Computed example of a mutant assay.
Amino acid sequence: MHRTYSMRQSRAPTASQIENPPPPSSSTKAGRLFGRSPVGHVFRRQAAGAFGPDLAKKLSQLVKMEKNVMRSMELVGRERMEVAQQLSIWGEACDDDVSDVTDKLGVLIYEIGELEDQFVDRYDQYRVTIKSIRNIEASVQPSRDRKQKITDQIAQLKYKEPNSPRIVVLEQELVRAEAESLVAEAQLSNITREKLKAAFTYQFDAMREHCEKLAIIAGYGKHLLELVDDTPVTPGETRNAYDGYEASKAIIQDCEDALTNWVSSHASVSSKLSTRARTLSQRRKANAAKHREGQGVDLANQDQPMKSDRDSWVPAGEHRGAHEGQEEEEYEDEEEEEVEEANVNGEGGREREGERSAHDAVTA
């Protein structure tokens, strides 16, 4: 910055840069047709989906939108550097402690702007990888169009000239076109999965490094604020002389060392899966491994069994036996009903015979 120790001096590559070499400068930092105005953002987003093959239109629009995001982040980084310089300029006219601390805070904020610029370069790795998927989609579209065109020609000939000898020729061309399309579709499927994982690995790794380093700078920034004496004074009272110059330099040096030595393996924030998520993930990997080895995946316990009528799940050969068993059950039910009716009739007959005997005795 303007007076004291600054991180902007030339320095050796950091441990993170040695472990993961930085990518080339982002492709969005040059060749701007519309400058820095938001008009270029709107035009790119709308024009991306209007041209090119149908298969690649959606991904083309995503690539252009990500380009807008990167240019916005680039603008944020540049503005942050200017803010850092202005903060240091303002602090020159303040008391010694405020002047020194604002100068060091300007150093830290300027470093954040540099980190934003580096993040844009790494973010561009993600965008370029996604762009390669778009290029593969665009290359697959002609094979789809050719197959559809031949299919339409065959249908038209069969409608107008059912006996045309050209139908046989077109059917042979359709077989070749379908074979080419199958190869192209398989390549698209494989490359899409490979590039998708690689692209978002670049993005998430860049985000992790960026956020961890921002947290480091924020922590040392709060240490710098402790050097400012905010004890209220009465009118006419003078504050103690400021003696924190060496301490502020040491804090800045410690911050630079922390940023220089940071590597992803020593990240403070880690994402830990719950027991359920870890179990499901391991089960999915095991099933995928079995599938690759040619073994079937056991789905017996995948879902709960459905409740439905008994006969709908009985094999065809067993339907007759089931009906016979049902007929036997109905026959047994009918026999039980006949016995019950006989018992009822017998008891009723004995009662009627007893009533006749009593009547005859009274009459005699």
Score class of each variant (00 low, 15 high):
S281H: 11
Y123L: 11
E340V: 02
G346I: 11
Q46S: 09
G106E: 05
E324M: 12
Y331I: 07
Y245Q: 13
Q156C: 06
Y245K: 13
D333G: 11
V168H: 12
K195H: 03
M73N: 04
A138L: 00
D254K: 12
H41Y: 12
Y5A: 13
L214R: 08
T279Q: 14
E171W: 07
E351D: 08
E74M: 07
L115G: 00
R276L: 13
N68H: 01
S60G: 11
S6G: 06
K290I: 01
I136K: 02
E330Y: 09
Q141V: 01
C211K: 05
R239P: 07
G296K: 14
R292C: 03
H41E: 13
Q61L: 09
S27L: 07
R144P: 01
R11E: 09
Q17C: 08
L188F: 06
I112M: 12
G346L: 13
D117Y: 03
N261R: 11
L157D: 02
E194Q: 07
E173K: 14
A184L: 00
D303G: 05
I191N: 02
E92L: 13
P305A: 04
R193N: 07
S139I: 01
K160H: 10
S16E: 08
M207D: 05
V42F: 15
R352A: 15
V140D: 01
Q9E: 14
